[in-house]
Simulated assay, not measured.
Amino acid sequence: MAMDLMEAAANGTGNDKDTLYLLGGVALMVFGVGLVLSNPTVRRYMSQFGVGNLASNVIPDVERYFKLRAM
């Protein structure tokens, strides 16, 4: 009985570790982006670049794409 449980646990650990590494990497990236964007200098450059304007210009194109895809 114990050997069966050990074999079953050993077979699934590879997938579990991969998932853990993937989610940990995503969490670190989100945390890093948050740290970078909290810097006032970066915020100033982003406002000069016009990221808000870029996002508002892209939204109609995305909506049009989804309408065409739904056809």
Rank of each mutant, 00 (worst) to 15 (best):
F66L: 14
L54A: 08
L28Q: 07
A27I: 04
L22C: 02
S56L: 09
D61P: 00
S56A: 09
L23Q: 06
L5I: 01
M46A: 15
T41K: 09
V30Q: 04
A55P: 03
V36D: 00
L35E: 04
N39A: 11
A9W: 05
P40Q: 06
S56Q: 11
Y21T: 12
N53C: 04
L20P: 01
A10Y: 11
N53Y: 01
V58E: 13
G12C: 08
L22R: 07
A9Q: 08
L20D: 03
A9G: 00
N15L: 14
L68Y: 09
D61K: 13
G32M: 07
F49A: 13
L68I: 10
L37E: 05
A70H: 05
A27V: 03
N11D: 13
F31S: 10
L23C: 02
S38K: 14
G14E: 14
D18F: 10
V26N: 11
R64Q: 15
R64L: 14
G24M: 01
G14N: 07
Y45G: 03
N11Y: 03
A70Y: 05
R43P: 00
R64F: 10
V51M: 13
G25F: 00
V62Y: 09
R64C: 06
D16H: 02
A55F: 14
L54N: 00
L28E: 06
G34D: 03
V42R: 02
P40L: 02
D61H: 12
K17E: 14
D18R: 06
V30F: 02
N39K: 13
L5Y: 02
D61M: 12
Q48I: 08
M3K: 07
N39H: 13
G12E: 12
N39R: 11
S47N: 14
A55V: 15
V33Y: 08
M29H: 02
A8R: 11
A27Q: 02
L23H: 06
D16G: 06
S56E: 12
